[in-house]
Design a protein around this nucleic acid. Structure first.
Lengths: 182, 182
DNA sequence: TAATTATGTCAATATGGCTGACATAATTTT
DNA sequence: AAAATTATGTCAGCCATATTGACATAATTA
């Protein structure tokens, strides 16, 4: 090693107690969320790489597919990123024919976003392994009450932002309502 | 707009049906996981910013705090990043006194990592709002069976990698076993 | 008409990843 | 003992994704 600097701090001879705070903090679930989400998001990565896309493209495509007719401003709110960050990724999705823009019917400044058939197919392909993972986990964990899990996850979201969660009508995705473009 | 190119593709006059595939894919939970994790990770960000740290620092500090004596190689495995990526972040945590290295007792090439008291305190401060959010969500969702949630999250992790999840002894974090340094 | 809004774009910067190459010290193998 | 391997560190360059700030255009609202 170049500059060792390897002090050898004494290990306390008598192990210290975990503090009260430690016990109160739910490290177990915090960590499980990290691991679960890490592997959950890794599923689509291999697929995305084959298209020259990254996770940013995935997120955009997912929400455009789920909320057909979403405007740019609405998308920015959901993703919590800036329009400059969105720009490159969205442009690539449009240029490669996965997403189209339509002038807003009421307000012509707005751009409604729609997934093309191609976009819908990719969104589905990306969601499939994630969905399989979820169902396998539900089964493996012996979860009968799937609604409870949904309630928990929704309750994890900031109250002010829960409206976003509720956007797609309870029946499923809005594809059936507003159609796919192209 | 500079180059409009605003075609107006026809919206299909009769909305298309959601395909069988759509119905089978669990978009609801996929999306809830995105929203839940987005807000879950946003909690510590404000705190980190005050220290000039980012999420990468948080992850390193978390695992060093949770698994005292972890070696660099083990940390890389858990985080699934390269040593070059770890280097800058770890160096900053060491230079600012949140983490210390100790020469491995068996193998002197190894560097065991420990959180200092300062590091332990920060790790705790970062975990607290996350822990509160989890408990509030459990209560709000009326989840009585907390173990079921843990089983589900663990089942979401790739089987090969579940050993990582089990590392900290079930009792809690290993602080009580191996002590904090400095 | 003037102000505001929705979108787009340019430029510079930060963060957190990556690969490849190489160095050092310590351990293991031959 | 010498050679090979391992654990760690470091340099250099690159990429993806995010940021802030400034400015432009078209459309809507006041």
């Amino acid at each position: 090693m170049k500059s060792p600097m390897m002090k050898r701090p004494m290990k306390p001879s008598q192990p210290q107690e975990a503090t009260r705070e430690d016990e109160e903090v739910d490290f177990a679930i915090i960590e499980l969320l990290f691991f679960a989400y890490r592997d959950f998001t890794s599923d689509p990565d291999a697929i995305l790489a084959r298209y020259g896309f990254g996770r940013a493209h995935h997120r955009v495509l997912h929400f455009v597919n789920r909320r057909p007719g979403l405007t740019v401003a609405e998308l920015l709110e959901v993703l919590r990123i800036t329009k400059q960050s969105l720009a490159r990724v969205l442009k690539q999705l449009i240029d490669t024919g996965y997403v189209v823009q339509v002038q807003g019917p009421r307000d012509r400044r707005q751009r409604e976003l729609y997934a093309t058939k191609k976009g819908h197919a990719l969104a589905l392909a990306l969601a499939l392994p994630q969905s399989r993972r979820i169902h396998a986990a539900l089964e493996e964990a012996g979860i009968e009450d799937r609604a409870a899990l949904e309630r928990f996850l929704k309750a994890m979201v900031n109250p002010e932002l829960r409206a976003q969660v509720d956007r797609p009508p309870s029946g499923g995705d809005r594809t059936s309502e507003r159609g796919k473009m192209e």
